[in-house]
Amino acid sequence: MKKPHILIIGMLVGLTFVLSACAPGPRVSGTPGLELSGDQAFVAYGNSLYALKANSGTVEWTYPEESKNTVLFFAQPLVVDDNVFVGDVAKTFHKIDRSNGNSVWTFTGANGYFIGQANEGHGMVFAPNNDGNLYALDLQGNLQWVFETQHFIWSQPQIGPDAVYLSSMDRFVYAISTDGKQLWAKEMAGAVVASPVLSEDAGTLFVGSMGSDFVALKTTDGQLAWSFTAQNSIWGQAILADNKLYFADTGGFLYILDPLSGAEKSRVEIGEPVIGGLIALPDGIALVTEKGNLKVLEFDGSTRWEARISGNVFQRPVASDDYLMVAAVDGDNMIYAFDVQSGAQKWSVTPKK
């Protein structure tokens, strides 16, 4: 097992220990969840969810308004219209009004931590949990169904026209009907923490595993369209952009493939492990390494600009038309914001009440 695996799994093991300790309240031991939507950034970390002004990092509100020792956040928030959805490690999933930070509802029916980011579609919110279950809730917070896997779920479900696609650390990728029935399951070479990616026509699902395999699956039946073997394990989500497929591995390589055939078009040496995956920009792609090297690349993999931040990074960057942001741990600050075009750093902050 390589160092990035040890670091991240160690944080989760440490989190388990902290939450079970006989202390007045849980101590922070994990990585922040960050999302950017419009003129707001949302940071889930420790006892609070913070709403920040995207142009300055100023805190607009915190949730809950008064810190509670029973609440601890690390999952990446999901922003849908006027609401923020996020789970905590006290087995509670929250819907919050993004304008003021007030609670809309909470769901308390899970048996484990919420670490993965939720997703929304078909009139429901799909919340993955460390108890191995995917919880489907209606928009009023009522449980509609539960889908069970055999291990932790750290990935975000992918929503298709007629199905939900889910990867699990039990080594399987699942297709689930919108009423919660298994349509098919495909075993991978290793545990899967990467979120799957759906092709534009919804006919193909792309995903990689810790076993270094990256596959394209037919969404109709889960049959293998093609497979590719990376040099190292794959933790982060791939992206489709410019008619190409991009993903990175823990050995510090960026792979550029033909999404139709799986043929390798190019391989770029990044030089450091990439854990959190990639994001697509209108005119390029972005990634950040575990050690905080933020890079914006052209579609051919050449570097447009890069910046070094302080700390370790385990989540992919988030972007808007104006900003590119990164969440880090064990550094000078927690959140770093850059001009997406020039790479100039705009601000950095560790949110506080």
Results as ranks from 00 to 15, higher is better:
289 T>Q: 08
293 N>W: 04
283 D>R: 12
285 I>F: 03
285 I>N: 10
320 S>N: 12
306 E>R: 12
319 A>R: 09
287 L>N: 00
286 A>L: 03
315 Q>I: 02
285 I>Q: 10
286 A>Q: 09
306 E>N: 15
321 D>I: 00
308 R>P: 01
321 D>R: 13
283 D>Q: 13
289 T>K: 03
305 W>R: 06
319 A>N: 11
311 G>T: 13
286 A>G: 10
315 Q>V: 03
309 I>C: 01
309 I>K: 07
294 L>G: 08
318 V>T: 11
312 N>F: 13
317 P>V: 12
296 V>D: 07
308 R>H: 12
283 D>K: 12
307 A>H: 11
290 E>T: 11
310 S>T: 12
285 I>G: 09
288 V>Q: 06
315 Q>M: 11
319 A>W: 06
299 F>C: 00
315 Q>W: 10
306 E>P: 01
308 R>D: 06
319 A>P: 02
304 R>F: 00
298 E>R: 08
293 N>Q: 13
292 G>H: 09
288 V>F: 00
285 I>V: 13
319 A>Y: 04
318 V>D: 10
299 F>L: 07
298 E>F: 07
301 G>Y: 04
292 G>W: 08
318 V>S: 06
305 W>D: 02
301 G>H: 01
321 D>T: 12
299 F>M: 03
290 E>N: 12
312 N>P: 04
301 G>A: 04
313 V>F: 09
286 A>Y: 08
286 A>W: 08
320 S>D: 10
291 K>A: 12
287 L>R: 03
283 D>N: 14
289 T>P: 06
285 I>A: 04
308 R>E: 10
283 D>C: 05
293 N>R: 12
282 P>D: 15
312 N>D: 12
291 K>T: 15
308 R>A: 10
283 D>G: 03
318 V>Y: 00
288 V>N: 03
319 A>E: 13
315 Q>P: 06
282 P>R: 12
308 R>G: 09
289 T>H: 01
314 F>G: 04
295 K>T: 14
295 K>Y: 06
303 T>M: 05
309 I>W: 07
300 D>P: 05
288 V>A: 00
316 R>K: 15
301 G>L: 00
306 E>M: 07
312 N>H: 13
313 V>T: 14
299 F>E: 07
292 G>F: 08
282 P>L: 03
296 V>R: 13
294 L>A: 04
320 S>H: 09
